[in-house]
Design a protein around this nucleic acid. Structure first.
Lengths: 152, 152
DNA sequence: TTAAGTGCAAACCTTTTGCACACCC
DNA sequence: GGGTGTGCAAAAGGTTTGCACTTAA
């Protein structure tokens, strides 16, 4: 889906819920759509400020929550002490490998799990919205003892 | 594994790292081992106090982290704003279904995923320690519209 | 004896909230 | 115009930390 049509959908979502499409929402939406990685609220704020786009921290948090509710973002937690966000649209289904030694998050493209997830949940009468598989362990670099600690 | 032998292992782990086996550590270990569910630091503290077992909050946090490092606990995050802990030993492999409406966490016993997880990770040169699959959606009760909001 | 651990209280950090003002439709 | 959103600053809530005191080995 193109960004323009995502914005159109978002406007419709907002209107349908009696909410306004403000300039702050426009700016936040386009900043979010421009990111390919997973990011924290702080990351995003930092990058927005670098580009001269000013929104308050409170507004950003309020809107990240809203975008999650609108299914444009998912919240992910890598145990780094804060929430990470990830675009839903234009992102291939993938899972995360989290290195306990250096903190790196590796994405693995796979759709194998999705059907298994669906099956298991359905057996419990559960209606699936989305899932998160996180695999914790040690990345290749750290196994070789040559990674520098990053803390994304 | 019996609790006694777990304690023995833990003592060995501590000794091997130049750490002491204090009475606080003994009390926390046995409290943790007595729990079958997932619990927050605060849950545990509350229950310990009900049983007249006093440790300070700081000590509890320090020791929960230590128990995780010793692979006796895993940290899980259900997006409830705080970490949950879960015993590693004596717990069947299972995954979590988290209801977005009422917050309930349902456990689903399955070992199907483990081999798939292993395979995917190995292809990325990743050494698996443990994994967490969380499935977000709506539980049966909430689909029927008859759940009262709990926030575990 | 002495290095390691504990308790306390204060600090931290991310996220949320109350309120007055601003803005979208 | 009227209700929705924003910014600010303060609060909240879970978790961590500095420091003096205690304790295991």
């Amino acid at each position: 889906m193109q960004d323009a049509s995502i914005e159109k959908n978002y406007r419709a979502y907002l209107a349908g819920n009696g909410m306004l499409f403000t300039k702050e929402r426009a700016v936040i939406l386009s900043s979010v759509l421009s990111r390919e990685d997973h990011f924290s609220a702080d990351d995003l704020l930092f990058h927005m400020r670098q580009e001269g786009l000013e929104v308050s921290r409170a507004t950003l948090y309020r809107n990240l929550k809203l975008l999650s509710q609108a299914n444009l973002l998912v919240e992910v937690d890598f145990g780094h002490g804060h929430i990470h966000y990830e675009k839903c649209i234009g992102t291939a289904p993938h899972e995360h490998l989290v290195c306990k030694a250096c903190g790196t998050v590796i994405e693995v493209n796979t759709s194998k799990f999705s059907e298994a997830v669906e099956k298991v949940a359905t057996q419990a009468g559960f209606m699936v919205d989305h899932h998160q598989l996180k695999i914790f362990g040690t990345c290749q670099k750290c196994q070789a003892g040559k990674a520098e600690k990053t803390n994304p």
